[in-house]
Amino acid sequence: MDNLIIAGKTYSSRLLVGTGKYKDFSETRAAIEASGAEIITVAIRRTNIGQHADEPNLLDSVPPSKYSLLPNTAGCYTVDDAVRTLRLARELLDGHTLVKLEVLGDPRTLYPNIVETIKAAEILVKEGFDVMVYTSDDPIAARQLEEIGCVAIMPLASLIGSGMGILNPWNLQIIIDNASVPVLVDAGVGTASDAAIALELGCDGVLMNTAIAAAHNPVLMASAMRKAVEAGREAYLAGRMAKKMYTASPSSPVEGVIASARSQ
């Protein structure tokens, strides 16, 4: 079987999905089911104290018994906020250690602050977290994060929520070639072909949220993403043909083509 292994655990799906921006929890659940994803990201936020006692909880729709939840540090701009958020997540999820670290550097682009990300990763790895880390597509940053002990490197394809697709496949290729832990594209995927390209490049997986949640039909897009990830992975494993620049090569026999009746 061609499985994805992260921090020693085996997954059959290479598509990881978020739970944000859906109309309601019912749509969240339907989209996740259609995606076939096993690792599901969640955010950690302050609860309303003393209000909405019967408010539905996300974890009722996405139960930790069924999915590997991946708490994130979305919205954190400092090492301290990110580390505290994930300690709370570990407590919330009964000692669960698989986490997604992101330390942002700018509210407009949500671009990662790599210096702070590295500092936070060092602390979290020492505390026993299995850190999947959101980063830029800088191969040196990726290498340093791997050296710290992150269990997966997750470079952006383009800005979070932008749907701009894979803007720098060359940098992704360098990161993939150098890494000995899984590399997953996180952020920027807009449609199914983007996901397929990521897998064709040799990425081990793709993490997405907005591309599914902001589609006109999220459940159908989730299904499309599932197929795109599977197709991209199979194409990668199959090994694509070499590109021939400016030279055609016929697929049909050159010999035996009928001739014009008049020339015979």
């Binding site: 990201t41 936020r45 302050r46 609860t47 104290i49 919330l92 949220n209």
Partner: peptide, 10 residues
Amino acid sequence: LEVVVAVGGG
């Protein structure tokens, strides 16, 4: 005190 829950996010 900080009191938190899991919410939708990516």
